[in-house]
Simulated assay, not measured.
Amino acid sequence: MKTLKVVVEKWNPRWKEEFLKIVDSLGDEIILNSITIEHVGSTSVEGLSAKPIIDLDIVIRNDKFTLMKQLLEERGYKYEGNLGIQGREAFSYNNKNDLMTHHLYVCPQDSEELLRHITFRDYLRGHPAFILEYSQVKEKAAALYPDDIDKYMEYKSGCIEKGYKECGLL
Results as ranks from 00 to 15, higher is better:
M1D: 09
V6G: 05
V7Q: 09
K10E: 14
W11G: 00
N12R: 05
E18N: 08
I22T: 06
V23F: 14
L26A: 04
G27E: 02
G27M: 06
I31F: 11
L32F: 13
I35K: 11
T36C: 09
H39W: 09
V40Q: 06
V40F: 14
T43S: 07
S44N: 09
S44V: 05
E46D: 14
E46K: 14
E46A: 13
G47K: 06
L48P: 10
A50T: 03
P52A: 11
I53H: 13
I58D: 01
N62Q: 08
N62M: 06
D63C: 10
M68Q: 11
M68S: 06
M68I: 15
L71K: 11
L71M: 12
L72D: 09
G76A: 02
K78T: 08
Y79F: 15
G81Y: 15
L83Y: 15
G84L: 12
R88I: 08
R88Q: 12
A90I: 04
F91E: 07
S92C: 15
Y93K: 04
Y93M: 02
Y93S: 12
K96C: 08
D98G: 07
L99W: 12
M100P: 04
H103E: 08
L104E: 02
Y105R: 05
Y105T: 03
V106T: 09
C107P: 04
P108G: 02
P108T: 11
D110V: 01
S111K: 01
S111T: 01
E112K: 15
E113S: 12
L114Q: 05
I118T: 03
T119R: 14
F120N: 01
F120E: 08
R121S: 11
G126A: 04
H127V: 00
P128F: 06
A129V: 06
I131N: 03
L132M: 04
E133W: 12
S135V: 00
V137Q: 06
K138M: 07
K140G: 01
A141I: 01
L144D: 06
Y145P: 01
Y145E: 03
K151P: 05
K156R: 13
C159V: 00
I160A: 10
K162M: 11
K162T: 00
Y164W: 07
Y164G: 00
K165E: 11
C167S: 08
